[in-house]
Simulated assay, not measured.
Amino acid sequence: MTPGVRPLIAGNWKMNGTLREAAALAEGVRAGLDRVAGADLLICPPFLHLHVAAASMGWKPVAIGGQDCSADANGAHTGDISAAMLADAGCGYVILGHSERRADHSETDTLVQAKARAAIAAGLIPIVCVGETEAQRDAGEAEAVVAAQLAGSLPPDFANAKGVVAYEPVWAIGTGRTPTEADIAAMHGRMRAELAARFPGQGEATRLLYGGSVKPSNAAAILALPNVDGALVGGASLKAEDFLGIGAAVPA
Results as ranks from 00 to 15, higher is better:
Leu124Ile: 01
Pro200Tyr: 12
Leu154Thr: 00
Val165Arg: 03
Pro61Ser: 11
Ala197Thr: 02
Leu96Trp: 02
Lys215Ser: 15
Arg137Asp: 02
Ala103Arg: 14
Gly75Lys: 12
Ala139Ser: 15
Thr206Asp: 01
Arg30Gly: 06
Ser56Thr: 11
Arg207Phe: 06
Ser56Ala: 15
Ala205Gln: 12
Arg207Ile: 01
Ala55Asp: 12
Thr175Lys: 11
Ser106Val: 14
Ile43Gln: 08
Glu181Phe: 11
Val29Pro: 03
Gly97Lys: 03
Gln113Val: 04
Ala219Ser: 12
Leu124Val: 02
His51Lys: 13
Gly66Ser: 10
Gly230Cys: 10
Gly211Asp: 01
Phe158Arg: 01
Val165Trp: 03
Gly235Lys: 05
Gly189Phe: 07
Ala231Asp: 11
Ala73Ile: 03
Arg20Trp: 13
Tyr93Asp: 01
Leu154Tyr: 01
Thr180Leu: 12
Leu225Trp: 07
Gln67Gly: 05
Ala240Ser: 14
Gly17Thr: 10
Gln113Leu: 10
Asp88Asn: 11
Glu100Lys: 07
Ala63Thr: 07
Asn74Lys: 12
Val228Gly: 04
Leu225Lys: 03
Leu154Gln: 02
Val94Asn: 01
Ala118Ser: 13
Leu25Asp: 07
Val52Arg: 05
Gly131Leu: 05
Leu96His: 00
Leu42Val: 12
Ala151Ile: 02
Gly4Ile: 13
Ala196Glu: 11
Leu209Tyr: 05
Glu168Ala: 08
Thr78Gln: 01
Phe47Gly: 09
Ala249Gln: 10
Ala76Cys: 10
Pro169Arg: 02
Ala196Phe: 00
Val164Asn: 00
Gly92Tyr: 03
Gly201Met: 10
Arg102Asn: 03
Asp34Cys: 13
Arg102Asp: 02
Ala103Glu: 13
Ala53Asn: 06
Ala193Ser: 15
Ala248Met: 04
Asp68Tyr: 08
Gly66Thr: 09
Ala87Glu: 09
Ala172Tyr: 01
Arg177Phe: 11
Val233Pro: 11
Cys44Asn: 09
Ala172Gln: 00
Lys239Phe: 08
Leu208Trp: 08
Leu208Gly: 09
Tyr210Arg: 09
Val165Tyr: 01
Ala76Phe: 05
Ser56Arg: 15
Thr110Met: 10
Lys115Ile: 12
Trp171Asn: 01
Ile246Met: 10
Ala205Arg: 13
Met85Arg: 03
Leu150Phe: 08
Gly235Ser: 09
Ile125Phe: 00
Ala89Leu: 15
Glu168Lys: 06
Val214Asn: 04
Leu48Gln: 13
Ala252Tyr: 11
Ala249Asp: 09
Ala73Tyr: 10
Ala151Thr: 13
Asp88His: 13
Val145Gly: 04
Val36Glu: 05
Asp72Glu: 15
Ala148Val: 07
Leu223Lys: 04
Ala23Leu: 00
Met191Tyr: 07
Met1Ala: 14
Val233Asp: 08
Ile222His: 05
Ile64Phe: 11
Val112Tyr: 02
Leu50Gly: 06
Leu208Asn: 08
Asp72Val: 12
Ala23Pro: 04
Leu48Val: 15
Gly97Asp: 02
Leu225Pro: 06
Glu168Val: 14
Val112Glu: 03
Ile222Glu: 02
Ala63Gln: 10
Ile246Arg: 04
Ala71Leu: 08
Trp13Asn: 05
Leu8Phe: 07
Lys115Arg: 15
Asp183Glu: 15
Arg102Val: 04
Leu19Phe: 14
Ile95Tyr: 03
Ala186His: 15
